[in-house]
Design a protein around this nucleic acid. Structure first.
Lengths: 234, 234
DNA sequence: CGCGCGTTTGATGGTATTCAACATTTGTGG
DNA sequence: CCACAAATGTTGAATACCATCAAACGCGCG
């Protein structure tokens, strides 16, 4: 009674090299789930009952501080695992995950984590690679926050998002999900006001085009120069 | 001709549950190495030929940006692995490691990484736990850099160092290796000037005692209040 | 004992936050 | 379908925080 098709996950690196009947077994234990825009996939501090694979959509992972400030840890794209508290040896989620658009996820009970990673080497290996990659990302971000000023950080974030989920449009590269000034501020450790001012400034210079919840990068090269701090302030 | 004694590593979590002859095998392939204060264990961007275990001393892990600014990623204490580029699937070191005091390290050729982690489950498991823990640390740091101001960040770093390597002294908790204002600045994304001012201020308030390359935390509870932002500015 | 590195401290300025008000877009319900 | 509320974005002004610039100090090592 596998109502989920193998093709959903067959191509993904996490399940590389697995036999059809293994894929079926994995899917048999998965429950697929629609998550409406702005709905929560899992909540910070909650018991980590499941881990997830994002089949379609975009999810933002957010940490909320004791005094209510929010920091966006990352955006997850289709094909990525999320909620992998188990891989970190945790029993609670270290952050919340919120659907940036309507999403489809697969969810597995947390107890299967250990089983999957020892039974399917590719699964374990792939997710440890993911954790390693995220560690490096996080370090990069620490370095940026320590050494760059806001303008450069915002530019870098936009370029990173464009690389991750950019769609070619007429004007340039469009970031493929709704993203507010506030969201960008929470990714860069600044305020929505400062982000707004920067985007306005950049728009007058023709670097970007932006509107309500959307940003298009018109001149990636010039924005990159700016991100690297090689563009005169004028 | 094992000139290294099993007892050096027998108690460590990385080698838990290993038979004596396994420990001997591991040690047989290790080369022990004295590293003088301020000397380099490995260098950012260099080919990751080895991974290391710090037997004694303290090492700081530093990332240097293209324009020469330095950010201290972490301090490594005795018993911890370092240079684990291999666990992240890298072939070069993502940072440099510098001895904060005279150190003793064991070094293994990088090719043994794969062998160790598949042959000795405890080794693989323990190091992946380490990577996971470091990822969470890094995220905590990103959150701090995004939401707190310098005063709180410096206070947090001192408390963290005290917890990690603090030695009880007459006056309070002494951070157990030489650490300069500049070092603290590179851990918190500020300047040595600001750190100096803060330490001076805190000294007048009796929170810390500090001198050339040393810091003692006199009143951890009050410093913690300050780190959490619950202490009036007065 | 003198030199050098680490530290201290003052003065100044810039970057970004904060406060405030308003504009624009979206969505909703009458 | 329009009116209105809510959410998002813009922009100006005042302010705060911290970096930068500059100079001097003092501890500790050779």
């Amino acid at each position: 009674m596998s109502h989920l098709d193998r093709s959903l996950i067959a191509g993904l690196p996490q399940f590389q090299g697995m036999e059809p009947h293994d894929l079926d077994y994995v899917l048999m234990n998965a429950r697929s789930q629609l998550v409406a825009k702005d709905a929560v996939v899992f909540e910070q501090e909650a018991e980590a009952h499941s881990f997830f694979l994002l089949l379609d959509g975009h999810v933002r992972v957010v940490k909320t501080t004791a005094d209510g400030q929010q920091v966006i840890v990352r955006y997850i794209s289709a094909g990525e695992l999320l909620g992998i508290a188990h891989a970190l040896g945790r029993t609670t989620y270290p952050a919340s995950a919120i659907a940036a658009v309507d999403c489809v996820v697969l969810a597995w009970p947390g107890r299967l984590w250990a089983e999957f990673s020892e039974r399917y080497p590719a699964f374990g290996a792939s997710t440890y690679r993911t954790v390693g990659a995220r560690l490096q990302e996080a370090h990069t971000r620490v370095v940026e926050m320590s050494t760059q000023q806001v303008e450069q950080r915002v530019a870098h974030v936009l370029l990173r998002l464009a690389k991750q989920t950019g769609k070619k449009s007429e004007d340039g590269i469009l970031i493929d999900f709704p993203i507010s000034r506030q969201n960008i501020a929470e990714m860069t450790g600044t305020t929505l006001h400062t982000v707004s001012r920067l985007l306005s400034l950049w728009e007058t210079r023709g670097l970007v085009r932006s509107g309500r919840q959307k940003v298009t990068i018109v001149q990636p090269q010039r924005l990159f120069m700016l991100a690297e701090g090689r563009l005169p302030k004028e």
